Amino acid sequence: MGLIHIDLFTTLDGVAQAPGGPEEDPAGGFAFGGWQAPLLDEVVGEQVKSGMAGMDALLLGRRTYDIFAGYWPHADGEIARLFNRLPKYVASHRTPALEWAGSTLLGPDVIAAVRELRDRHENTHVIGSLNFVQTLFAERLFDRLTLWVYPILLGSGKKVFADGVVPTNLRLIEPVVASPKGAVFQRYALADGTPGVGDMSAVGQEG
């Protein structure tokens, strides 16, 4: 069975809206579109490229797909060549025209369609697509979660973990690494069960 990877850039207070530019997602009057740009460095760039090893499909929400389709077909470089040759799957409530070569609209039962992708591809990556990611979280329909957490607070904006996230265990699978400009790389695997509870009042009372 293949893996579904979710890759997100987020602030320390969990905002993942529009990291790439002012026009990416101004919903709700969001005033900080492009917040990631001043904090990029070579370490994050190499981590992103390394994480794409073995990627054989893209799974995107409609807004992210439109942004990517408007940029990557006209770009050059390693990432552009990869994205342009990969199959692209799009989750949308509508029936948009998908003009980027290799693009397919998922059927009306998006959850079933995503599960089928695991049988078709080894490593399907969801990049950005924050609204769609909430569905994957709610259904526990992912296998890897990679976060780049940046040392800024924005106070408002769409969050990585919004209402509807179900209690879930994760397991850290790579060492946490901080880049020169403070982005903290964290990669997790979905783990079995739900979070346990205990009583901290007993700590330190033994003996």
Rank of each mutant, 00 (worst) to 15 (best):
T10S: 14
A189V: 11
E116M: 04
G107R: 14
P26A: 12
G155I: 07
H125T: 10
H74K: 15
F185A: 10
S201L: 12
H121R: 00
A202D: 06
E122M: 01
D41E: 01
I4A: 03
Q36S: 12
G107H: 09
I173V: 15
A138Y: 11
T11C: 01
Y89H: 12
D56G: 02
L170Y: 15
G51H: 05
L106K: 11
G45R: 01
T146H: 12
P26K: 11
L172M: 14
A18E: 03
D13V: 04
L86S: 05
K159T: 14
P96Y: 07
F185S: 11
P87E: 10
G21C: 01
Q134R: 15
E99V: 08
H125M: 12
S103E: 07
L98Y: 06
P38M: 03
L106E: 08
G61L: 09
V90M: 12
F68R: 06
G34A: 08
S103C: 06
E206V: 08
N123M: 10
T135P: 03
L136M: 11
N123D: 07
P38H: 07
F32K: 11
G34P: 05
I67H: 11
L39G: 02
Q17F: 01
D66C: 02
Y71R: 10
L136C: 03
G61D: 00
W100R: 05
A138L: 11
A75N: 08
P167A: 11
V184C: 06
D163Q: 14
M55D: 03
P96R: 10
V126C: 10
G54M: 03
A162E: 15
G21H: 04
T10G: 07
R144T: 13
F83D: 01
A112N: 09
I152T: 06
L136W: 06
P96W: 05
G20R: 02
D56F: 05
G20T: 02
L145C: 14
G21K: 02
D163T: 15
L82I: 13
D109V: 06
